[in-house]
Design a protein around this nucleic acid. Sequence first.
DNA 1: CTTTACACGTGAGAC
DNA 2: TGTCTCACGTGTAAA
Lengths: 510, 510
Amino acid sequence: MGVNCEINDEDKVMLEDVVGVEACKFLMSRFCEEFPSDFNDTGSSDGGMLNLQQGLCQIVDGSNWNYAILWKIVSSKKDGRSVLIWGDGHCQDPKVVVAGERGDGGEGKLVEGNGEIGKKDEAKKRVLEKLHACFRKSEENNFVATLDKVSDIEMLYLTSMYYWFWLDSSMGPANCLTSGRPIWVSDGSACSNHYQSRAHLAKSAKCQTVVFVPVKAGVLELGSIKMVLEEQNLLQVVKHIFGVPQSVQAKAFPKIFGCELSLSGSKPPSTNLNFAPKLEDDAAFSAESHVGGSNVGAKHTYGSSANGCVSEDSGKKLVSEINFGGLNPEAQTPGVEPTKEELLLQPKPRKRGRKPANGREEPLNHVEAERQRREKLNQRFYALRAVVPNISKMDKASLLGDAISYITDLQMKVKMLEAEKEMANPKQKHVAIPEIDFQAGQDDALVHVSFPLDLHPASTVVKTLRDNQVLAPEANVSTTDNKIIHTFTIRTQNGGAENLKEKLQAALSL
Amino acid sequence: MGVNCEINDEDKVMLEDVVGVEACKFLMSRFCEEFPSDFNDTGSSDGGMLNLQQGLCQIVDGSNWNYAILWKIVSSKKDGRSVLIWGDGHCQDPKVVVAGERGDGGEGKLVEGNGEIGKKDEAKKRVLEKLHACFRKSEENNFVATLDKVSDIEMLYLTSMYYWFWLDSSMGPANCLTSGRPIWVSDGSACSNHYQSRAHLAKSAKCQTVVFVPVKAGVLELGSIKMVLEEQNLLQVVKHIFGVPQSVQAKAFPKIFGCELSLSGSKPPSTNLNFAPKLEDDAAFSAESHVGGSNVGAKHTYGSSANGCVSEDSGKKLVSEINFGGLNPEAQTPGVEPTKEELLLQPKPRKRGRKPANGREEPLNHVEAERQRREKLNQRFYALRAVVPNISKMDKASLLGDAISYITDLQMKVKMLEAEKEMANPKQKHVAIPEIDFQAGQDDALVHVSFPLDLHPASTVVKTLRDNQVLAPEANVSTTDNKIIHTFTIRTQNGGAENLKEKLQAALSL
DNA sequence: CTTTACACGTGAGAC
DNA sequence: TGTCTCACGTGTAAA
């Protein structure tokens, strides 16, 4: 198509309008930066999914999820810095199903396509074309042209294609990877924090739930416009399909260990100072040594980044970072034996980054369990907040109160509606036909059936005729296969019946 | 009436049936005990409400409350023991409004009275008459005879009239008085605990909320069949109308102080032992000295009976004992000066029953405030539990999850029902009359109106006729004022139309 | 024994 | 400044 990769002011305004100011800024900066082309694909080097697309479909199709994106972790050949890039994805929203892959673009399958493409859709398409032109090599075919209509979910999904992240964020996929723990957010406003610059797109798409799961190749992102509650089951499935990250923690981010340490004790400043020397050792250890096969990363799961690194952000309260099945064996099964490698490499520091209070090991898991319990509970609170409208105040008690009155309101509403329904339905066939008179003659019979006028479908006709002083006390009814035809023979001679046809039609169309 | 005050076995069975086994037992025991007639009316001695009834009406009428009872505290002239007796009350349920006062019985105003008095109502009336005969002096007129129908709420209310309590209970009005704190329970099952032997009556009346508020003259009890959430506003109003108790704590119940102490520290047993000696002093102090005018009772509010005395009862979790406006000035305004009397009488023990951690006073109120916050939150949880059906597990997280899915379910239900309603209503008048044919002649016109058979009220008739191989392709319709009469002339000669009348009636009554 | 859920006292941030 | 809410670590009790 005739779209070049220069972005003029007009383009920028359109871009800002469609993807939001932040995303525009982000994408412009990405455009200015050199695209990281010198990265090793660390994920696929040791046997990643043969067919990512298949796995993604398995997760998304027929589920509540509207899209899945696999952010692939790759590391620079030069300095070893890691970056998350678009690996693959799958999108499915109520109306449109699109599957896209980075290499060959994507094929848009249109389920519903009315010819009318709104102004906004046109803008979306132009933005996608522009992005494609700017970020993709020219030999890649432009799949955008094949799309008729771009839903908001699709827009979020397709724009994400041009994203890539350094692992320096305390939010979103990067944080998921560095913390090594899944992030499950099912509150719209909290989602925004994790969509970061994609927040505007996510909001437009009405995304209510976003989940990041650390997997072997990087991070799997799932999004839904529904509110999907935290579900360990799904995490297990994801783990099964996409594998578990070998070494969860990032290779060169001692910062997060610092963060983890800073929240270890109940008084962060002092304990942080006390444990600072150990931090360096540990960071060096995990930066250099890959202990293959065993879950060394589990050692770092105690310090939740939701409590540490994100601490200055108000969004911390809205985030649940849950434990990931068997990913954290120490927390799940506390008495587990450390592996040989662990014993070899760390003979002394049994629990890093966390003061065991009195030297004994037991309360540690207790603390962690309690932390998780709290997080789960909070997650439910945020979820509740999402489904209850008219929250008076933001505190929990008010929320519960509002939820209760909302529920009782709904119950009443349902009761009333159902009562109405019950009243309406049988009345039509029951109350409407109370009077039947059967006069049997010799060879024939007369059946009189009497209906209340109001409930009779012909009532509007009769009433309209009466309103116009037209007398039609009698009518003939003939029944065909599936129709009943009332034939009213009326006198129109004494005037007042002008435009009667129009009046009837008007009355009937009400 | 011809009801004597002897209770035979038959009476007892009826009594048990109507008021429940417990209430029957309680009332029988009360009947055997001598009614406390030698009590001082401590409440009215220092200027109680001039017109209690007025205040009770003010609280109940037009509100969600179905009844209000003022339990008056009176103390024995002999031994100083206190008892709560029926002071006054006001009852208002959806159907019946009754106001009763102890002295002159009560006047029953019947709003709705259909002449049909059921067997159960008869039993209720007989029970009330029996109770009246047993407990009231003969000169009091029997108001029961004036009642036509006794609702369950009324039954609870009227039976309560014959109740009186020693202050030795950890539940209900007695506990409210001894603890000096309002009790607000808006969970049906938890209500039972506080209704004590009246539980069966309360359950029959479907009482969902019961509130006890300590007031000047004793304890105000409010009950509602609705779930009414804790509301400080109401407590303030009650306080304003009925006044604040002068000396909240009971005169001779060191037991509750012991209870209060037992829960003071985080390790009940040890602290309880440590503070046991002090207990005796304090108990003696408050038993002997009436410090008029100041809120000495506030000293005792830390030990909440909901946490202490009731501890072995599972109902403890279902009870909220909340702070009562200015009733607990220390908790509300921490820096308040102790009164002279307090300083004189207790020079040393600053905060009884609670170790101030580090000697400073500030965290104490903090602790209390937090306690209240927790209780409030829990109260909401129990309330939520009450309105959400199908609770899978009893823990909070599951409760919230269930509530959320219940809400979404309800929302969907409402949406569907409303959609159905929208679909059904216009369809009846809109889709049913799509075809109208107007043939205007010279002096007359023919109006053909055609309906789908299924939506026509006469369809059952037509179908029934068809099913019986009766041909009636034509019928005559005549319209009267508010009826439409279809007259079908049918041939019945070729048989198969036997019992046609019955068949028609059967089809129409479906 | 472990697991799980809860309430408590406490420090901290928000207003 | 106090007041209110929250999250945290801890003790405890039931499963």
